[in-house]
């Protein structure tokens, strides 16, 4: 991530994007694509049932297409806005995906393992609709956090940034960032156990 953020090329591309250079969109996506892929994989790792139906990179491709579409119209003024937008697209894609799979008529119903992975000596995993529902709820709940807390979660969770980097991007102290992070997690957990 350091490499991603420290990349002069990314900063340069974002600058060009802000100045209205349409070609900069592709560059920005290229630089951030790898990071976004890691995130999606990380988030899907716990859900083999989802991976069975829609591979990590398919999810990411959709998220990137959404992001590309968003960048057609919106011009993020800085890294902070761009990373926020990217997190938003991933969140939406994952929520959509989970909705498609869960429920009595979801695609995943009555399919309880991933045969391909069994062959690869992965632990046998069983589909638990409750997990998938909770997963959706977490992403939705993050979307409804107060702005300051949601930004902290976007950067630390969705973007995988360190607290230092996140605080730098938001222009706040690390302590403030940590406060927001704690508050967001407590709020999310309260909501989950409510």
């Amino acid at each position: 991530m350091q490499e991603f953020l420290a990349s002069n090329q990314l900063a340069e591309s974002l600058k060009r994007l802000v100045q209205g250079d349409a070609n900069a969109r592709d560059d920005v996506l290229e630089y951030s694509g790898e990071r976004l892929r890691q995130l999606t994989r990380k988030m899907l790792n716990d859900f083999p049932v989802v991976r069975r139906w829609s591979e990590t990179d398919d999810v990411l491709q959709n998220a990137l297409l959404r992001l590309l579409n968003a960048l057609q119209t919106l011009q993020p003024a800085n890294e902070r806005d761009f990373l926020g937008l990217a997190a938003l697209q991933i969140r939406r894609e994952l929520i959509d995906l989970a909705r498609r799979f869960k429920g009595p008529h979801g695609l995943a119903t009555n399919h309880d393992s991933n045969p391909a992975e069994d062959r690869l000596h992965q632990p046998l995993t069983t589909f638990d609709p409750a997990d998938l529902a909770q997963w959706t709820e977490i992403h939705e709940a993050i979307g409804e956090l107060p702005d300051a807390e949601r930004e902290a979660v976007d950067l630390i969770f969705y973007q995988g940034l360190s607290q230092d980097d996140s605080a730098g991007i938001l222009g706040v102290s690390v302590r403030t960032l940590q406060r927001r992070w704690h508050s967001a997690l407590v709020r999310l957990d309260d909501r989950r156990t409510r």
């Binding site: 991530m1 360190s162 607290q163 309260d190």
Partner: peptide
């Protein structure tokens, strides 16, 4: 709550790059 949510999200918090 914080530990539970960090576990669910799979986040290992650090001030350093992860």
């Amino acid at each position: 709550s914080i530990e539970r949510m960090e576990g669910r999200l799979g986040v290992t918090v650090s001030t350093r790059p992860q």
